[in-house]
Design a protein around this nucleic acid. Structure first.
Lengths: 188, 188
DNA sequence: AAATTCATGTAATAAGTTACATGATTCC
DNA sequence: GGAATCATGTAACTTATTACATGAATTT
């Protein structure tokens, strides 16, 4: 499971509570591996049982005790091994492509509306990714430049993928508006 | 759930058994919505309970009886409504990007190996998508051209996405080989 | 006065995967 | 002789989501 390894990665920087990890996940890997709070707590429990993490429980009334998780040597070895392990092809599920596949059942106008909706989604994603370098300008400035490069590489990928999808959608929408049935990539 | 609607879409062409549907799914929507056999049978059961499908059980000894599913009016209405419904942003989970995010922990050579593995995956996908038009040349020739266009559009999307990912990976690998830390998209 | 932050969790549900089970017929 | 085709399903498990629950302190 990959969430486990993302958590190991984050804890390899410093010990944290589940609450902190949730925030870090949202700021870092959530673009390509989202996780809700309950999933993180459950995963932490399993990882501790597996000996990848240790917990230090720090009481603090009246709040629930802080449970600070730290990575163990076993956990560090597991992280290192996983980081080098070739990952199988990612399965991507795109409901809107099912809609396109069966679009013969609806009118061109309705197909265009559907594609425009996806285009808006990609444009918002694009803006989000473009904003990240500025948002992180200060918080990241003290970090190791090589590490920072790999972080930014994941942002760059998001940018590239949102751009590619937006362009494809724009081309298809333009064709359909002209009443043409052109395949943008195959009919280069 | 989208598998349900993919199944409705397939059954909107003609009644089929679960076995047939599995084969059709593999040939059509599996590129963007894969499904294993057990999942299809479970889904068919639920859809029948919901009144979207009817079953006709045709005994045939000694094989298990053929259960031929047909779409109902309710099912057809559900399909039509869903085909027009804007879909929320698809959540994509890419484990290899978690590896990139934490690649600061491993050497450049190991990162390159990891990226080359992903590049190979995309190249194989590319070849697969390129082969589809030839494979389907005869089987699809009698179908409605508008319908065929939308089918091919999903193939075209697969092609475009595999190409975009392959190009991005090639650029990153080339940079890393030169010892450069360049972001292909941001540093245009 | 209301919303956010901190900080933990559980319960129910949904969706999907892996593995198992049966068994004749037909193709290579 | 062995693999693929046809045709059904179940059981156990994993991963993730949604919703609920508590409650003080701080910020807007």
């Amino acid at each position: 499971m990959s969430l486990e390894h993302a958590v190991l990665g984050l804890l390899s920087y410093e010990p944290m509570t589940g609450y902190d990890i949730k925030k870090m996940v949202d700021l870092s890997v959530s673009h390509f591996w989202p996780a809700v709070q309950s999933q993180i707590y459950k995963t932490l429990g399993r990882m501790e049982a597996d000996g990848w993490l240790t917990v230090e429980t720090i009481p603090q009334e009246p709040r629930p005790p802080r449970k600070v998780y730290a990575i163990t040597e076993t956990g560090r070895a597991e992280l290192l091994a996983w980081l080098e392990a070739p990952q199988p092809p990612s399965e991507v599920r795109l409901a809107w492509l099912i809609q396109v596949f069966f679009a013969g059942r609806i009118s061109d106008e309705k197909v265009i509306t559907l594609l425009e909706h996806q285009l808006n989604i990609q444009r918002r994603r694009l803006q989000g990714f473009r904003a990240i370098p500025d948002e992180n300008r200060e918080s990241m400035s003290e970090d190791d430049p090589r590490e920072r490069f790999f972080w930014m590489l994941t942002v760059d990928y998001g940018l590239a993928s949102a751009m590619a999808q937006a362009r494809w959608l724009e081309t298809v929408i333009a064709s359909l508006r002209k009443g043409e049935y052109r395949l943008p990539t195959i009919e280069s």
